[in-house]
Design a protein around this nucleic acid. Structure first.
Lengths: 223, 223
DNA sequence: TTTCTTCGTGAAAGATTTGTGAAATTTCAA
DNA sequence: TTGAAATTTCACAAATCTTTCACGAAGAAA
């Protein structure tokens, strides 16, 4: 991940760079908004860490300029008490704020949150596409792609997968799956779930790994 | 919440103690950085209110020492006009600043903000994580981490651990454990519990200490 | 100290649970 | 009605977990 740090104080940049690089990202620096805009014209960054008060061109104006050319996630850095127009920022597409003085952990948490959120893609028809490595899921369009190739799932397999994804990271018992995916009026065997999981896994190829068996309990979807 | 107040002026400590206790927290005091470091080695606090200028060992150096051993939230207290290196503080992981003279409201607001921020840790998938030192438990996702590493538990071990945690601090007889974790229809040996506790302890590594044997009674989970 | 009880632990038998292929059944549209 | 596709059930092997048991250690009581 390429991250551009924009702040007029050299020490702040240095510290941020340290944390950014510690997490395995590439850090780039700009001294003010003007420099940031120019760098963004030339290069693609995955995230901007942008101070608000800076000489030459302030953070908001810089973001406004940059957003005209590219859509890039932004986290604003603001000094405590510094007044800013939240609504304006929202319209600009600012993803988050961090107030100085900030703790390293906090900044890194925000960065991770923003970049994760941005991993989402949009389909040709405008539906949101959830992406988990090479597994792309377009719930509204009822499409699933495995390494770019469309996976042909049966109705139950779609529903099961979508339910898993909606409940990502949560342990699901067979009973809960049957109740929520099959319906309250299903009176069949528990193990029906297993068979569908088996078939779904088969269709997900390498990404079968996301459906984790929880012995004695059921399954969960976990990235 | 246990809060350690570190300041060389007795009056300041007294005032802070009053605020802290008013909100239902436990207040502890240290006269200088040296004392704070020693106290932190012995005890666990949920928050430090740390003055910067103090005899023997200043606030920053104290925080630096303490952070080597434990990760604890810190709010620095600085006299107005007192110069300090914000960046150094940032790297130390200081959570916030309060400038003297402070208003009660302000201090309490900061304390609440910091503790709230620290309180609820969430997993990558957004589940709440309970943390007991280096033992992290994500019940919804059925994940347990020991010093950051995932512990692979068997079904009964998960259930037993989760039951212990839900009944933290409560003495549990083998009978109660069998009834609630194994089920009312279990008619086996009492000592089955012992074997599972043994295996669970083995998986919890250093944190086996949380599962305390109550001779003649049973077990309890205690931090 | 000696005796008695309780607890920790390793090992092994016994019991469950899951993955899977295949057969049986149901659904749905032509 | 027919037939293909989808769903469900079933059975078996493999993997994994649970329970019991026996012995020694640690504590409590005499």
């Amino acid at each position: 991940m390429k991250i551009l740090i924009v702040d007029d104080e050299e020490m702040i940049r240095a510290v941020l760079r340290e944390y950014v690089e510690f997490e395995g990202n590439e850090a780039y620096e700009a001294k003010d908004g003007m420099e940031a805009v120019m760098l963004c014209k030339e290069n693609d960054y995955d995230l901007l860490l942008m101070d608000i008060m800076m000489p030459r061109l302030d953070g908001f104006s810089a973001v406004k300029e940059i957003k005209k050319i590219k859509d890039v996630p932004v986290i604003m850095l603001s000094a405590r008490g510094e007044e800013y127009d939240k609504l304006f920022a929202f319209e600009l597409g600012v993803d988050d704020y961090v107030t100085k003085p900030f703790s390293p952990k906090e900044v890194m948490a925000r960065i991770n949150a923003v970049t994760k959120r941005r991993e989402s893609k949009v389909s040709a028809s405008g539906n949101e596409i959830l992406k988990f490595e090479g597994l792309e899921i377009d719930m509204a369009g009822r499409n699933v792609y495995v390494d770019g190739e469309k996976a042909e799932l049966t109705p139950k397999e779609y529903e099961l997968l979508f339910y898993f994804v909606r409940n990502k990271g949560i342990a699901l018992t067979r009973e809960k799956l049957l109740y929520d995916v099959w319906g309250f009026d299903f009176y069949g065997d528990d193990r029906t779930v297993d068979t569908h999981v088996k078939m779904l896994r088969g269709n997900l190829k390498d990404y079968r790994k996301f459906i984790v068996t929880l012995r004695g309990l059921g399954y969960k979807f976990e990235v």
